[in-house]
Simulated assay, not measured.
Amino acid sequence: MAYSHPPGILVLPLTASQLSVPIPGNITQMTYLNTLHLEHNQLSGEIPWEFNRLFGLTSFSVADNLLSGPIPSQLQKFWPSGFAGNEGLCGAPLLNNCPKKRKRIRIRIRRLRLHRINDASIIGAAVGFVVGFVVAFYFPHWFVFSRRLHPYIFRI
């Protein structure tokens, strides 16, 4: 009985194919893929984390591209030469460690459009302050809502 391979692509050589896109994550749908060579292209971005699902890979290379970011754990078993020439790649099996990610806190500040302050608005604010102070001084029981503090209110 002859051994037959399961259906699917076993070898995907795309060396020097002049690819200049990010590596598509749907390559991982090729479950029987055992050789993937993408070196000498202009691939950019990160190596997709979906590559951790490619348990059957026995040969892998993305050397001499424009890749960056950490190398997925399933690919860390391959030789460093398969990742060479990608200045942005980091982590095992390369010697450079990945920088720790910092949490970026974005604060959105809404810009308020302030209208020009003129004499009328200054006079209105001053009159409102004086009226509010006089009313609170002569009728403090209107502004003290706690019944326990009412005995301490004295009338003038």
Rank of each mutant, 00 (worst) to 15 (best):
G25W: 04
A63S: 05
A84M: 08
R147V: 14
G25P: 03
I27A: 11
Y138R: 12
W142L: 07
H150V: 00
S44A: 13
D64A: 02
I107T: 15
L54C: 05
H37G: 09
S17P: 05
L66D: 12
R113T: 08
L89Q: 04
N96S: 08
N41T: 09
L38C: 07
N26I: 09
R104W: 10
P48K: 01
P48N: 08
R147D: 07
F137W: 14
G124P: 14
E46C: 09
I123W: 06
R106S: 05
I27F: 11
N52W: 04
H5F: 06
I107W: 03
D64P: 07
V62R: 02
L57E: 02
H141C: 06
V21Y: 03
T58K: 10
P72L: 14
L54R: 05
L12I: 12
N86A: 01
V134R: 09
Y3D: 08
L149Q: 00
G45A: 07
P48E: 15
G91E: 03
G8Y: 05
R155E: 01
L67T: 08
D119W: 09
P93V: 00
R108N: 03
A136N: 07
T28M: 01
V130P: 00
L19H: 07
K103S: 10
F83I: 05
I156F: 10
F137V: 01
T58C: 15
A63D: 01
T15H: 12
V144N: 00
I156E: 07
I71T: 00
F154V: 11
V134C: 09
R111W: 10
K101D: 11
S44G: 11
G128N: 03
R111C: 10
W49L: 06
N118V: 06
L66A: 13
M1S: 12
V144E: 00
I105K: 02
S44F: 08
L19K: 03
N34P: 03
N86Q: 07
G45V: 01
A16N: 03
H141K: 10
G25F: 01
F129M: 10
I27E: 15
A120H: 13
L66V: 09
P151M: 11
M1E: 04
I71F: 00
L10C: 06
E46V: 13
R104T: 13
A2T: 08
S61H: 04
R155I: 03
I156H: 04
P48T: 09
E46M: 07
G69I: 10
G91S: 05
R147K: 15
L149C: 01
F83P: 00
F133I: 01
G82N: 10
I105C: 07
F51G: 01
